[in-house]
Write a protein that binds this DNA or RNA. Structure first.
Length: 161
DNA sequence: CCTAATCTAATCACCCTCGGGGTGATTAGCTCATTAGG
């Protein structure tokens, strides 16, 4: 078996889907505790719930208004959940070192590598995935900023002369 | 095919500590992102 790139597709049962769809119609932006509750209820991981809601919002656009025109109830019902987030993960310096080393070797680890890494540093795989996303993103920004500064310097030099 | 998984870019939230950088978490993606597995 070669190292796998993607997580294998999870297939939800009709029963699970029914519960998810129901929850989505009530609130397309569930907070962390709501997602966790759902995960327990349908016996899956919270990260799968998160992905499912992301995809559903993208596809269906949550514009399906089940209520026609008489939902002038409470204006703060559809707030995209300001407060209820997952607790920030804090990495120890040795955990960070492990992550950084892995990143240098491969900034796009597949599911197998991520899971290995996750077990090694004792953190959920989903957190490892997020860490790599953020690191890639910030490295790109950093690199772009570096280029801009270099060209700014060139421009300044030109003006000075 | 259908849709879960993945990606980038932008933004929010919180920390540390007094002004703004650092970084984990969340979101959108527009003729509604792309890729790919069952």
């Amino acid at each position: 078996m070669v190292t796998k790139c993607r997580r294998s597709r999870t297939s939800f049962t009709e029963e699970q889907l029914k519960i998810l769809v129901q929850a989505f119609s009530q609130n397309p932006y569930p907070g962390y505790t709501a997602k966790q509750r759902l995960a327990v209820e349908i016996n899956t991981e919270e990260s799968r719930i998160q992905i499912w809601f992301q995809n559903r919002r993208a596809r269906h656009g949550f514009l399906e208004r089940p209520k026609k025109n008489l939902d002038h109830t409470s204006p703060k019902e559809k707030i995209p959940d300001g407060r209820d987030r997952r607790c920030r993960t804090s990495y120890s310096s040795s955990q960070l070192q492990t992550l950084k080393n892995a990143f240098t070797e491969n900034p796009y680890p597949g599911i197998d590598s991520r899971e290995q890494l996750a077990e090694k540093i004792g953190v959920p795989e989903s957190r490892v995935q997020i860490w790599f996303q953020n690191r890639r993103s910030r490295l790109r920004i950093q690199r772009k900023r570096g280029l801009e500064e270099a060209s700014d310097q060139r421009q300044n030099q030109g003006q000075d002369l």
